[in-house]
Amino acid sequence: MLELTTTRHNHLIDPGVHVWGWEIPIYLFVGGLVAGMMVITGYLLLTGRFRGRESVARSLPLISLIVLSAGMLALFLDLEHKLYFWRLYTTFEITSPMSWGAWILLLVYPALVAAMLIRPPSILGLWDGIVKLSGRVAADDRSVRWIGTLNVVLGVMLGIYTGILLSAMGSRPLWNSALLGPLFLTSGLSGAAAFVHMIARDRSESDLLVRADNGLLVVELVIIGLFLIGMTSASEAHIRAAGLFLGGSYTSVFWVFVVGAGIIFPLVLQLLMVRHKIRHTVVAPLLVVAGGIALRFIIVYAGQASHM
């Protein structure tokens, strides 16, 4: 038996590390969601589907910009030295995922604006100049391809970054897994597919998104399985960390909210949808989105509780 006592009593650190509250999981979720939406936008641009009359490509970039800005606000709220926020952009720290993220986000904005120009939302139609510019860009296949590719690439980078931000921290064994990036990317893509599915009006797009989401959910399940297997076959600290989900304090929330209600149940519903057994409703996508949020919260909170 080991009796360990410390006299340290620092706020956010003791008795257990809790440096990040709701802001960071929300930010990570939003980052993943936007990443997914960018990939979808890029796909629509690259496949020409954006030209469809009711294509969701018309609203996705704007929604992405708004959602991302909300996420950035959450990130900003988390900062303890807010007036120095600009310091992020006076340097590039190659070893820091957060620095990468800051710069990626800086590139994401113009990419989204460019995508928005191709099929501007109706409110932007009020300005003649924009309509004209938009028509010229949309007509140029090369520009569309470039912008589409840019959105896909930046979306994937953003999605992976949200996971790497955490997985780079060797001090928190639960985060310290190479699978966290792919997991967050997949979850982001899946969440985005579900979310876009909810707002898509074009039936073919909806079907496509549900099918894609089902695939992503299956992949996500596999990654979660591999994540836990990897964790339990690593160091003692990692085994203890995995224990948080395998009998430990986060077990029920993880299996009920992330795996059960967030992946398996909506997957079943969506499989039925694809076979036209049930109608498309918002229930399944909402569950997927909620599961994505739950995943971020649980990983961020449980990760802080895990210790070398």
Partner: peptide, 9 residues
Amino acid sequence: IGCKACLAA
């Protein structure tokens, strides 16, 4: 900037 990444790391 007080991002706390170092605290977690």
